[in-house]
Write a protein that binds this DNA or RNA. Structure first.
Lengths: 235, 235
DNA sequence: CGGGAGATTGACTGATCTCAACCCGGGTGG
DNA sequence: CCACCCGGGTTGAGATCAGTCAATCTCCCG
């Protein structure tokens, strides 16, 4: 974990345009300590760990993070990903509990840390910010409930198709229709909530059915409509 | 759905002592329209339905409510229960989206409705209330993520044991060690995320293993420690 | 007494997990 | 340069948990 001193100029602008801090007033913004620039993390570095104490918001400026819980038998369940503009650790910061997830870097990341006390003071003094933050929590809650229902009711096949579609919507495709996020088979399994081998077999089926193409970890989407159909999604 | 005019006196007191509205100041409290008393609902009545528009908080004064989502194939997934003091509908009220759950009465209920505009004005003007509400959302988020991991990773047997324990913690036991909530086998299945028949078979196993006793829908807990063991819970 | 909802049981099926073997490519140390 | 090792990926065989279907039972109610 290193610090860097470049892109210093953009940081405040980034917070105001891309994050939940958009409604902070200039005087509040001034109090956020960003002089040292964002923290820099490399792939596979852990930002904080389940059970650890955290005391502030980790705002992702660049990169991709996976946020997961480790189950009883050591198997990880990925809860969500963070992409630039997203906040990590706000649940524990607000409730004052220990972190209930681990956050690990998938793609090299730059992170801006904002002390919890500062955030809480903003909540109390700035109603618009409070509403925005509340909206963020509620949105995540809705997503978590949706996925809870999916995992409880859908087959692994349906869920894998849904996950691929969600990854597309979240991270988009590059010019060649490849997903702009690269995950191991095990990581995919840890999103879907299944065994690695099952993911491999199903991906292979999807490939045979011309829904996707596989080039190592890169996944190319050939037939989004049919994947959506398989996933039985509401949208 | 009927209104009633009794327990009028306690209602404000109830809001201030038992709910997330505990930090409202008297002048704010005055603006909540409670003159008509709480709304009264009978078992199986629906308060609001998934996909419907709601515009305020439903604060449960008395009774038990189940909050669930209906999956693709018509199967319900119970997300959580509401007991006196709990709020329903706050997610949709805050985000302005349509309701993402249905709420149905399990035990005859009295509910106090608080218009969303009022709540939002409180959030903006009362920082303590904003923090409390944020805390509530974050707590629910944590629980939802926990359960997501459980459903993804644990067996039906483990989950059923866990559900029984959670029901005990949430609703307590009566003098004879019976759970103070009565659910159909199907409802139990809709919490656990499994088929009704599976619940029946596993309950029957637990009975044979002297962990519980069954008297119709009433469940008596004989060996909490072993149920916790089976559930592989962290606590 | 007939009807219906919920509970129970049995038989069967099949999706998914587990275990084990094997492959492949990259990196490392001798 | 080569042998090896290791993490990930793949494949196959077998075991099994849990879902489905269907029949039956038990209440309770009108």
């Amino acid at each position: 974990m290193i610090k860097q001193n470049n892109d210093l100029i953009d940081l405040k602008d980034f917070l105001v345009t891309k994050t939940v801090f958009k409604h902070l007033i200039p005087s509040e913004l001034e109090t956020i300590p960003i002089e040292d620039g964002p923290l820099i993390y490399k792939r596979n570095e852990i930002i904080y760990e389940e059970g650890g104490r955290i005391n502030g918001f980790y705002c992702l400026v660049r990169g991709i993070i996976k946020i997961y819980k480790t189950g009883f038998d050591g198997k990880d369940q990925i809860i969500r990903f963070a992409k630039p503009g997203d906040i990590m650790g706000f649940r524990s910061t607000i409730t004052g509990e220990l972190a209930c997830t681990t956050t690990k870097v998938i793609e090299d990341a730059a992170i801006c840390y904002i002390p919890g006390e500062l955030v809480k003071s903003f909540v109390k003094s700035n109603g618009d910010f409070a509403m925005d933050l509340l909206g963020l929590a509620c949105q995540e809650l809705g997503e978590s409930n949706d996925y809870l229902t999916d995992i409880a009711q859908k087959s692994v096949r349906e869920r894998l198709a849904e996950v691929i579609i969600h990854l597309k919507w979240t991270f988009n495709l590059d010019n060649d229709n490849f997903l702009q996020i690269s995950l191991t088979r095990e990581e995919l399994a840890n999103i879907v909530g299944t065994a690695t081998e099952s993911v491999i077999r199903l991906l292979s089926e999807f490939r045979q059915d011309k829904l996707i193409e596989l080039h190592g970890r890169r996944i190319k989407i050939l037939d989004e409509a049919k994947l959506i159909k398989i996933s039985n999604m509401h949208y």
